[in-house]
Computed example of a mutant assay.
Amino acid sequence: MNALREHGASASAGRTIQPAWVRIAHWLNALAAVLMMLSGWRIYDASPVFKGFMIPPGITLGGWLGGALQWHFAAMWLLFFNGVFYLAMNIVCGRFRSKFFPLSPRAILHDLGEALKGHLSHADPSRYNAVQKFAYLFVMFDIALLIVSGLAIWKSVQFPLLRELMGGYDVARVVHFCAMVLLAGFIVVHIAMVALVPRSLLTMIRGR
């Protein structure tokens, strides 16, 4: 029995779990998201949404407003095109449906409870639990919201309908900032989970 378990673990470790295109898209998205947040914080400081709250300059990118905008727009295009590629490949390959569905509120609450108690199994890294499915779907939606609200801010005159759908320019800025906070929160939790299960990082680097 032990030999069979060892053989199964060896086979699991040797097979490809994350294809190359998933790993490349993942790291490009991570790079773009970090660059956009750091440069976005510098842009925020130039005209704060919430009076009295400023981001410490030492953790911002760009040095000044013009430089921050250049970094922000460069990272924005990387995030947009890489995100479109990631979604398209997931849909075409059938990975989107197989990896993220089925999903139900009951399953999310159950797996969240197990995770908080330390009982959630990570025996098969090729399968996402319900909390992971929800988290990844959430961050996809959040990035889409960042792009849409960013467009409403950047091209407010060119996209008046989009601006109005967002509730106006000032509301779009608040939505953009809040979506950024949620993305930052996701990144912190994601890194914490990787620290708890280090082999997930190796899987995203090596693919197996």
Rank of each mutant, 00 (worst) to 15 (best):
63 G>W: 04
65 L>R: 15
66 G>S: 13
66 G>Y: 15
67 G>R: 05
68 A>S: 11
69 L>P: 03
69 L>W: 12
73 F>G: 04
75 A>P: 04
75 A>S: 09
76 M>C: 03
78 L>M: 12
82 N>S: 11
82 N>T: 15
84 V>N: 00
84 V>T: 01
85 F>W: 10
85 F>L: 10
86 Y>W: 15
87 L>Y: 08
87 L>G: 12
90 N>R: 05
93 C>N: 15
94 G>Y: 09
96 F>V: 00
98 S>G: 05
101 F>W: 12
102 P>H: 00
102 P>N: 01
104 S>I: 00
104 S>F: 02
107 A>K: 01
107 A>W: 05
109 L>V: 03
111 D>K: 04
113 G>T: 02
117 K>T: 12
118 G>L: 15
119 H>N: 14
120 L>M: 11
120 L>I: 14
121 S>A: 13
124 D>E: 09
125 P>E: 03
125 P>G: 00
126 S>M: 05
127 R>E: 07
128 Y>G: 04
129 N>I: 02
130 A>W: 02
130 A>E: 09
131 V>T: 14
131 V>Q: 09
132 Q>T: 04
133 K>W: 09
135 A>P: 02
135 A>D: 06
136 Y>Q: 07
137 L>F: 03
139 V>A: 06
140 M>Y: 14
141 F>Q: 03
145 L>Q: 09
149 S>W: 04
152 A>S: 14
153 I>M: 15
155 K>P: 07
159 F>Q: 00
162 L>W: 03
163 R>N: 10
167 G>Q: 06
167 G>A: 07
168 G>W: 05
170 D>P: 01
